[in-house]
């Protein structure tokens, strides 16, 4: 199990993305960093807003790391949501496209590019869902 939202989780995510033929095909023309903002929900044991940036380039993930708010906001594409929404998406309980339409995931970036790459976005979510993830609000206290 890998703890959600840690650098270890992002390293695993990057490895899985780079091993995915489906992602390579769906994102063959994607260029640009994608930032994820996991917004704080202290009552869910996610006390601080956390930022991650994925350097995605032509079907490969060249880098994935935790970063500052300032750097995340400079990414050409930013998706933000509260921690528990991300958890629903990763678990496959919430479709990311429907979530964006409902305003549950908030996207900033060039919409035509995003719409052209909806299939790639779905693969990214599916890959995240394949990682055996330990969510902080489900950890048992010692």
């Amino acid at each position: 199990m890998v703890a959600y939202g840690t650098q270890e989780w992002l390293d695993t995510y990057r490895e899985r993305i780079n091993a995915s033929a489906s992602y390579r095909a769906a994102a063959a023309t994607w260029e640009g960093a994608l930032a994820y903002v996991f917004e704080a929900e202290p009552d869910k044991r996610w006390p601080e807003t956390t930022h991650a940036v994925m350097d995605l380039w032509h079907g490969q993930c060249r880098d994935a790391r935790l970063t500052s708010a300032a750097e995340a906001e400079q990414a050409p594409f930013v998706i933000r949501a509260p921690y528990s929404r991300w958890k629903q998406v990763i678990r496959g309980e919430l479709d990311p496209i429907k979530a964006m339409m409902q305003g549950k995931l908030r996207l900033r970036g060039d919409l035509p590019t995003v719409v052209r790459h909806v299939a790639a976005a779905k693969v990214l979510v599916a890959i995240a869902g394949e990682i055996a993830t330990e969510f902080p609000d489900e950890q048992t206290t010692a």
């Binding site: 964006m100 339409m101 409902q102 549950k104 060039d110 919409l111 035509p112």
Partner: peptide, 18 residues
């Protein structure tokens, strides 16, 4: 705006601008 309204507005804006 709901999420869809923001998405469609962004899509329209980009398309008519470009």
């Amino acid at each position: 705006p709901n999420g869809l309204a923001e998405m469609i507005a962004g899509l329209l804006q980009a398309n008519v601008t470009g």
